[in-house]
Amino acid sequence: GKMTGIVKWFNADKGFAFITPDDGSKDVFVHFSAIQNDGYKSLDEGQKVSFTIESGAKGPAAGNVTSL
């Protein structure tokens, strides 16, 4: 299901971020390909987002990341 959280930090050079979920679970890795914005895919620290949890090769990662 959809979860919500806050972007903890975003590394534009490497194209990934971490989200701190609102439910208090541990921070979730985000690859820029999961960001659903049109055009430039970036996130801002402190931004509120919704996302799903996908199981990636290196463990859980956020999918369908959308700005709220």
Rank of each mutant, 00 (worst) to 15 (best):
A62G: 09
K2F: 14
S42G: 09
D23K: 02
F51R: 00
N64Q: 08
T20G: 04
V49Q: 00
D22S: 06
D23C: 05
K26Q: 11
V7Y: 01
S25I: 03
K26V: 10
D22Q: 04
V65L: 11
P21M: 05
L43T: 02
F29N: 02
V30S: 00
I19N: 00
V28Q: 04
F18I: 13
K48G: 03
V30N: 00
A61E: 15
S25R: 04
K41F: 13
E45P: 13
M3A: 05
G1A: 11
T66W: 00
D27F: 03
I6M: 05
S55Y: 10
Q47V: 09
A34S: 12
N11Q: 05
K41A: 09
K2N: 08
A62W: 05
A57V: 14
K48F: 08
S42E: 09
E54W: 06
G39A: 09
N37E: 08
N64T: 09
S33W: 10
A57Y: 11
D44Q: 14
G59I: 09
L43E: 01
G5H: 01
F16K: 01
D38F: 13
S67L: 05
P60R: 05
K58L: 14
N64F: 08
L43Y: 05
N37Y: 13
G63Q: 11
S33A: 09
A62F: 07
A12N: 07
I53F: 10
T20C: 10
P60Y: 02
E45T: 12
T4E: 04
T66R: 02
S25Y: 03
Q47G: 04
A12Y: 08
A61S: 11
V49K: 00
I6W: 06
S42Y: 13
K41G: 10
F16D: 01
A17F: 14
P60C: 15
T20K: 11
D22R: 02
D22M: 08
N37C: 15
V28A: 02
K2G: 06
K48N: 05
D23F: 03
S25G: 12
W9A: 03
V49A: 01
N11I: 05
L68V: 15
H31Q: 13
G15Y: 05
F18S: 05
G39Y: 07
L68Q: 15
T52H: 07
W9G: 02
T20M: 08
D13Q: 12
F18H: 05
D23I: 02
I35A: 02
V28C: 11
G39H: 12
D44F: 15
F29V: 12
S33T: 08
G5P: 00
S42Q: 10
G56K: 06
K2M: 13
Q47T: 10
I19P: 00
A12R: 14
V28Y: 05
V65P: 06
Q36D: 11
F51Y: 11
V7I: 14
K41E: 10
V7R: 00
F51A: 00
G63I: 14
Q47C: 13
N37A: 10
V28M: 10
K41R: 11
V7F: 04
A12K: 13
L43I: 09
L43W: 10
N37V: 12
L43R: 01
H31S: 13
G46M: 03
A17P: 00
W9H: 04
M3K: 08
G46V: 02
D13F: 09
K48S: 08
G15W: 05
S55A: 12
I53L: 11
P60S: 06
F16H: 05
D22T: 06
K26E: 09
F18K: 07
A62N: 10
A61R: 08
K48E: 05
K2C: 14
G1L: 13
V49R: 01
W9V: 03
A61C: 15
P21N: 02
S55G: 13
F29C: 15
Q36L: 13
T4P: 01
G1Y: 12
E45K: 12
S42D: 09
S42R: 12
K26I: 08
Q36A: 11
K14D: 05
W9R: 03
A34W: 13
E54D: 09
V28T: 04
K58W: 13
N11E: 04
M3R: 09
G5V: 01
N11P: 01
T66S: 07
A57T: 13
V65I: 11
D13S: 11
I53G: 03
D13M: 09
W9K: 04
G24W: 03
I19T: 00
Y40E: 11
G5F: 02
L68F: 01
F32R: 05
T4Q: 06
I6N: 03
K48W: 14
A57K: 08
G59A: 10
N11C: 15
D27R: 03
V49E: 00
N37H: 10
G15R: 08
S50D: 04
N11M: 06
K26G: 11
G24Q: 03
F29M: 14
A61Y: 14
F18E: 02
D38V: 09
F16V: 14
D38W: 13
D13E: 13
N64K: 05
F10P: 01
G39T: 07
K2Y: 11
K14T: 06
P21C: 04
Q47M: 13
T66G: 15
G63P: 10
K14W: 10
S55T: 10
N37G: 13
D44Y: 15
E54Q: 05
I19S: 00
D13I: 12
T20W: 03
N64M: 09
T66V: 14
V65N: 15
G39M: 09
K8P: 00
K26W: 05
L43S: 01
N11D: 10
G1F: 12
T20E: 05
T4L: 06
F32N: 02
D22K: 02
A62S: 11
A17S: 01
D44G: 13
Q47R: 07
S25Q: 04
F18P: 00
K41Q: 10
K26S: 10
I19Q: 00
D23Q: 03
E54G: 07
D38H: 10
V30K: 01
H31P: 14
F51L: 02
V7H: 00
F18L: 10
D27M: 09
V65T: 13
G56T: 14
K8E: 01
K26M: 10
K14F: 09
Y40K: 07
F51W: 11
F29W: 11
A17W: 04
I6A: 03
G15H: 07
K2Q: 11
M3D: 02
G46E: 01
D13W: 09
D44C: 15
V28R: 05
F18Q: 07
S67D: 15
A34E: 08
L68S: 15
S50L: 08
I35P: 02
S67V: 06
P60K: 05
G5A: 01
D22G: 03
K26C: 15
P60W: 01
M3L: 08
D23T: 03
S25P: 02
Q36I: 13
E54A: 04
S50F: 10
E54P: 05
G56Q: 10
F29A: 04
V28N: 00
G1E: 09
A34P: 03
D27Q: 05
S25C: 05
A12L: 12
P60N: 07
A34H: 12
D44I: 14
V30I: 10
D27E: 08
W9E: 03
D27L: 05
G46K: 02
T20H: 06
K48P: 08
S42V: 11
G46T: 02
V30W: 15
